[in-house]
């Protein structure tokens, strides 16, 4: 039997990747502008605030690192799924208007009096962004669904047009905001993982993202076949409509969660699935979990660089993902494409 993905190989790859993720989480949590000692952390919080600074720094960092993992996992996984159902390797989680919808929601929130990035741990902005994302995506889906038979093309077109329109509105709105709000709006639009979240928010978002990824993983074999086209997948016994709706709505849902927590972090959703495909092959049964895991790893590393590279000054993580993601991906592309062409 020639090589294909077996259950055993898939499970081994997933376990190895999870171990790598744990190691990266550990390293990134102890890395920072102020070094902390793990033995101090293990002593616990102490009786009063300020008793154990190391513990406090640790708890801030670990929540930021975990949020990075969830956001990265959601973006990369949703990128892989959208590339499959749109049959378009250039698709990313933002292609169907999620980004501009969330952006518009967030900018509207920031224009409201009394709401800033740090107000209530960013909860109002997150809520606005989430609502904006879900409304836009439903709008794009309905336009795509009701116009014409070739749904993929009309979906993509609807997404592009709505993205362009909302981006113009966002620009217009940033022109009228006050200067101190402008900076935080720009920060949000460039993608930024916030320092502090309510732990209940972190926990519930993490749960939803993981559940979403598991559901997408369960339809991954259908996604393999859907990339061959609608006729082919029906001929192989796939309920194409149902698979598409499940894939689309859960990808949109986890992306909306990610965007509402961290703004528009680019590159992760496009590049991570491609990198995994180049290394491990195109089988979605493995691509989806591995994209999620390495998406988390990639974003946490990028965010660690974003908060440490320039001392106290923090960069938006979206800048780092583009700066290190781009060249890294080009290297992968050059290496593995050559391997494939030699195999021919």
């Amino acid at each position: 039997m020639p090589k294909t993905l077996t259950k055993k190989r898939m499970i081994i790859n997933i376990i190895i990747s999870l171990v790598v993720l744990l190691i990266v989480i550990n390293i990134c949590t102890v890395t920072g502008t102020r070094s902390i000692s793990l033995s101090n952390v293990l002593k616990g919080p102490g009786l009063e605030p300020g008793d154990n600074i190391d513990y406090e720094i640790f708890s801030v960092r670990i929540s930021r690192v975990l949020l990075g993992v969830f956001v990265g996992a959601a973006l990369a996984c949703s990128g892989a799924v959208l590339q499959a159902i749109l049959k378009n390797p250039l698709a990313d989680p933002y292609i169907l208007g999620i980004s501009s919808g969330a952006g518009l929601g967030a900018v509207i929130a920031m224009l409201l009096p009394g709401i800033s990035l740090s107000f209530l741990g960013g909860l109002p902005i997150a809520a606005f962004a989430f609502t904006g994302a879900i409304i836009t995506v439903s709008l794009v889906w309905s336009i795509g669904y009701f116009t014409g038979r070739s749904q993929v093309t009309s979906l993509l077109l609807a997404g592009v047009v709505i993205n362009a329109f909302f981006s113009a509105v966002i620009m217009l709105m940033t022109l009228i905001v006050k200067t101190e709000q402008l900076r935080s709006t720009m920060y949000w639009l460039m993608g930024n993982i916030p320092e502090k979240q309510e732990s209940f928010l972190l926990l519930s978002c993490g749960t939803f993202v993981i559940l979403g990824i598991i559901i997408l993983w369960r339809i991954s074999n259908n996604l393999n076949i859907i990339t061959l086209g609608e006729y082919e997948s029906k001929g192989l016994g796939i309920d194409t409509e149902k698979t598409k709706i499940v894939a689309f709505s859960f990808a949109a849902f986890i992306t909306a969660i990610a965007v509402s927590l961290s703004g528009l972090i680019g590159f992760v959703g496009l590049i991570v699935p491609h990198a995994i495909r180049l290394i491990f092959g195109p089988d979605h049964r493995q691509l989806i979990p591995l994209s999620a895991i390495y998406g988390g790893i990639f974003l946490v590393i990028s965010d660690t660089i974003a908060r440490t590279a320039f001392g106290q000054e923090q960069l938006p993580v979206g800048v780092i993902t583009a700066v290190i993601g781009g060249p890294f991906f080009l290297i992968l592309l050059a290496r593995y494409t050559r391997k494939v062409s030699l195999m021919k």
Partner: peptide, 12 residues
Amino acid sequence: VFDFSVTEIVSM
């Protein structure tokens, strides 16, 4: 669209 191998396609 994606680089499936012959066996992968037939296995579907």
